Each structure stands twice: as C-alpha cells, then as structure tokens.
Amino acid sequence: MTEYERARTMQALPEQVFEQVGDVARLDAWLPADLHVQEEELPAVTVHEDRTGEDASALFRAEADQQRVEWGTRENGSYAGWLQVSGIGSGASEVTIHLSFFEKSHDPGEAVVHTALDRSLERLEEQVRSTANGRDGSR
C-alpha cells in the first residue's frame, strides 16, 4: 500500500470549506481536471477519468458533523481517500487530503499524486474564495 498526504491553510471558516467539499455537484470545481464525479444514489457515485476514458464505481460519504469526506472504489477496493477540514482560529481552516493506493498498479507515482493534490487544494481554495466573495458582495 502507498499513501500520500498534503495539507493547505485557507482563510475561510471550516463550514465554508466543507460546503464545497461535501457537495458532490461541486467536486468537479476542485478535483483534478481529468476526473468527473456523477452522483448516483449516495453514497454510490461513478468517477470518469478523461485520461483513460474509463468509468469506475465508487463511494462518497460526507460527514458534516466531522467536517470530513471519504471516498474509494466500490468493486475492487484499489483506492481510497479522505479530506478533513479543521478550524485553526481567526477564521482560517486547515484542509488535509489523504490518498491510499492498495494496488501498486493503480498508483501513478509520488510526483504525479503530489502535483494533483497540490493543484486540487489550490482549486478548492479558489472555489471557496469565489463563493465567499459572492456572498459578501466583494470582488
């Protein structure tokens, strides 16, 4: 098994961040650009990967009381992940994302995963910021 983890501090309340990550309809806004999630009957989802053209049956659970989402493949159990939002005071949050690859053949490698995680956290921060700006009217 191979595991990867990245974290990022965001200037937003944990509830604002979780509002973005816990909503299946908003996942495409911050996930890697080549992944697309289609909601079925939750927790069931289908993940389409542009690079391979394949669809994978997956699970997605959002636990608002814990400010945590978890996901993973349904049928073959080759991949799982979680994202945790934690308040760190002064209106800021730390967002930690963790991936586990249970089969070596599904692990794209450290450089690829770290780049994808960093970019996803950047995109999430941009999404949270743009949503917050839309709420308060500032730009």
Score class of each variant (00 low, 15 high):
Q67T: 11
I88M: 00
R6F: 13
A132P: 14
T52C: 00
G109R: 02
L42K: 00
E122R: 14
Q11N: 15
F18S: 03
E70R: 14
V24D: 00
P108K: 02
L124Y: 03
M10S: 08
W82T: 07
T96H: 07
H114R: 10
D136L: 06
R26T: 09
T52S: 05
A80E: 07
Q16P: 10
A116L: 01
G77H: 09
E40W: 10
A116D: 06
A44W: 12
S57Q: 13
T96W: 04
D50R: 06
D65T: 10
V37R: 00
V95P: 01
W30P: 03
V112H: 04
E63H: 14
E54F: 09
A116G: 01
E122H: 15
E125G: 14
F18M: 03
V37D: 03
S57A: 15
Q84S: 03
A25D: 10
R8N: 12
Q38N: 13
S57C: 13
G77A: 04
A92I: 02
Q16F: 12
V45K: 07
F102Y: 10
R123L: 13
E3T: 14
A132C: 12
H36A: 06
L35C: 09
T52M: 04
V21M: 00
M10P: 10
A7C: 14
E103W: 05
V85D: 04
V24R: 03
S90F: 13
T73D: 02
A56D: 13
A64C: 11
E70H: 07
L124P: 07
S78D: 06
D50E: 11
W30E: 08
E103M: 05
Q16E: 15
Q16R: 14
V21F: 04
N76T: 05
D34L: 07
Q16T: 10
G91Q: 05
H98M: 06
A64D: 11
S86Q: 08
G77I: 01
L124E: 04
R51C: 08
V85I: 07
T115V: 12
R123H: 09
G137F: 06
T115L: 13
D28Q: 14
V95G: 00
E103C: 08
E70W: 11
Q127V: 15
V47D: 05
P43H: 03
G72W: 03
L83I: 03
S93P: 05
R74E: 05
V95W: 08
K104A: 14
G53Y: 09
R119F: 14
A29G: 15
A111S: 08
L27P: 00
G81P: 03
Q16W: 13
L42V: 09
A116H: 07
R139F: 12
V17W: 01
A33G: 14
A116V: 00
Q67P: 12
E110W: 10
G72S: 01
V37L: 06
H114E: 06
R61F: 13
E125I: 11
H106K: 09
T96F: 04
W71T: 01
G134N: 03
T52R: 02
F18T: 09
L121D: 05
